[in-house]
Amino acid sequence: MTRLLYFAWVKDKTGIASEDIELPGGISTVADLIGWLKTRGPEFTHAFEQDGAIRAAVDQTHARLDTSVADAKEIAFFPPVTGG
C-alpha cells in the first residue's frame, strides 16, 4: 500500500487529505501517477488539470516528474510552498 497525501488547494479540489491505495501496474514515476490520478473522477481531473502548478514529494523528499514511485511509502501533492 502507498499513502497519498494532498495539501492546500490540491486537497480542497480532491476533497480528501490522504488515502491508502494499491498503485495500479504500469505506474513507475510521479508523472505516471499524476496521469492516472487525473482519470479517477471529476474532482481529481480538476485538481490535477494544471499539473505544471503542482509539486510532489516522494517519502517526504521533493520529487520531480521523473522521480520513481516504485518503492514509495508516501507520496504527496501540493502547490508551490508559501511559508516564511
Binding site: F7, A8, W9, A57, A76, F78, P79, P80, V81, T82, G83, G84
Partner: peptide, 18 residues
C-alpha cells in the same frame, strides 16, 4: 519547506500564490 498560507478576508478565503 512545505508550508502553505491561506488568507481570510472580507472577500473570502484564498491560498497565497508563490
Amino acid at each position: 519547506a512545505p508550508f502553505w498560507k491561506r488568507e481570510s478576508g472580507p472577500a473570502g478565503d484564498k491560498w497565497v500564490e508563490a
